[in-house]
Write a protein that binds this DNA or RNA. Structure first.
Lengths: 253, 253
DNA sequence: CTTGACCTTGCCGTTGCGTAAAGGTATAGA
DNA sequence: TCTATACCTTTACGCAACGGCAAGGTCAAG
């Protein structure tokens, strides 16, 4: 089987422009060019493209992929591990960013949070103050120290009010769940309310939410006896009931 | 106080090139230019620059910042909220990426994981298979379906082996903690081992780890009676002990 | 033979600057 | 006053990974 740029592009889900670019940077060259200069790709190129796209999915840069797919000596596994470190660092950065953005939003909405707001406005004022006195190279050092520590955590950013709400939600979940259990129906409004409460409760400590993770956790409440014991301490069967309610809530399976 | 590009740059921690660029794209123009064409900035410009840098810290694009700082009509809060959504989506993407990279690493290390590995190699083979039969526009549709669902979660990516390890770790934590409690010393090697086990246990369900969050969670084990009850069910005081051990482990305060 | 769907190379635009290059200006010391 | 040097200016290329033109050649069907 032989392919032109567009055929191969359709097959692999990339544009013909991309294939020309890959040729240009030398990461994937066609098997040959026909008499009219058309790029012709064969099966080995299809395989190689799949490899390239696989690594691209993982977010590696084309230069790195080039080494991996073109040099069999190259340690792809090591490259992946290094890549993972980069991704983890990136996520930490992102988490911090999100945390700051959220603090700013609540601050502009007037929801107390003044301590965090000060972190920034204070930083601004400090700079201007320094300006009044003198300016010099050491100011940049101060500026550096002022940047927020990257190991900030969502949990530690909870305000007292947020923490109180977290506790209250947990309690409401318990009572709602106990009520719902009486109906015996995990599809009942009460049970679904419990699932929703559980989600909101979770989200205080989970930096992200996904239905799959929620459903997975619910299943674990049943599989892990320690969790089961915790939920069943009021009424046996509560953990299973909660799991069922959550699985319905999350459209699981 | 008046500043030239470099002076202002030092003051605010940006390069003079950046200031010229900001002038160029019209986000921050100097108060005036002197007879030699030098850019001269005054105090209002310093303030504005601080605003710009603040939003830049939050990861907004300069075009968006331009609107916020130049147009008082513009709803900055709404822009921030939209930005937050983007960041959250980005994080979800990133989490998925990390999860896939990690699966690939364990797969290449031969750690079973075949189900996940197949997700990719199977995807490649399917493509080639389709190729053998026919190729056409509908293949792109199949390809699209084959792309991994973006709402994938770390928890659901656990293999059976990982899950077993998770359970085992939890049990080891319990026994280690019970042993350590006998020493009564949260600094003891056993207690520190428990803290470390707790961290490893946590990391199965936490997509990121930070000492602050770990310490915060430990504190919550004491503050929240439901957690306390869980940990104290063997021996009263276990929750407090674990908190102390973790606070030492994380160098808290 | 024409039409339309393909192919080619080449170049600009994207984001937020870094980094020259080529040349004018301010200031301090000899 | 000369000059060293530390500023300043504009212009423009480079970065990553293509998207999207334009201008022009090619191929298969009717």
């Amino acid at each position: 089987m032989e392919y032109t740029v567009q055929k191969l592009g359709e097959l692999a889900g990339v544009s013909s422009r991309t294939l020309r670019y890959y040729d240009e940077i030398g990461i994937l060259k066609p098997a040959r060019k026909n008499s009219s200069g058309y790029r012709i790709y064969g099966k080995p190129e299809v395989d190689k493209l799949q490899q390239i796209l696989f690594y691209r999915e993982l977010g590696l840069e084309l230069e790195g992929i080039k080494k991996i797919v073109n040099d069999p000596q190259f340690d792809g596994s090591a490259a992946l591990k290094q890549h993972r470190e980069q991704l983890l660092a990136k996520r930490q950065q992102l988490d911090l960013l999100i945390s700051n953005v959220e603090n700013t939003i609540s601050a502009t909405e007037g929801k107390s949070q003044m301590a965090d707001k000060d972190k920034f406005t204070g930083f601004k004022e400090k700079l201007i103050e320094d300006n009044e006195n003198q300016y010099g190279s050491e100011i940049r050092g101060k500026y550096g120290d002022e940047t927020i520590d990257a190991s900030n955590a969502k949990m530690m950013n909870m305000t007292e009010g947020q923490y109180a709400e977290f506790i209250r939600l947990g309690e409401e979940l318990q009572t709602t769940l106990a009520e719902a259990l009486k109906t015996g129906d995990p599809e009942s409004p009460a049970a679904q309310k419990a699932a929703k409460l559980h989600k909101r409760w979770l989200m205080f400590t989970w930096p992200k939410y996904s239905k799959e993770a929620h459903a997975g956790l619910a299943q674990m409440y049943v599989d892990d006896e320690r969790f089961t014991a915790y939920y069943d301490k009021g009424q046996p069967g509560t953990a299973k009931f909660l799991r069922d309610a959550i699985h319905i809530y999350t459209n699981f399976k």
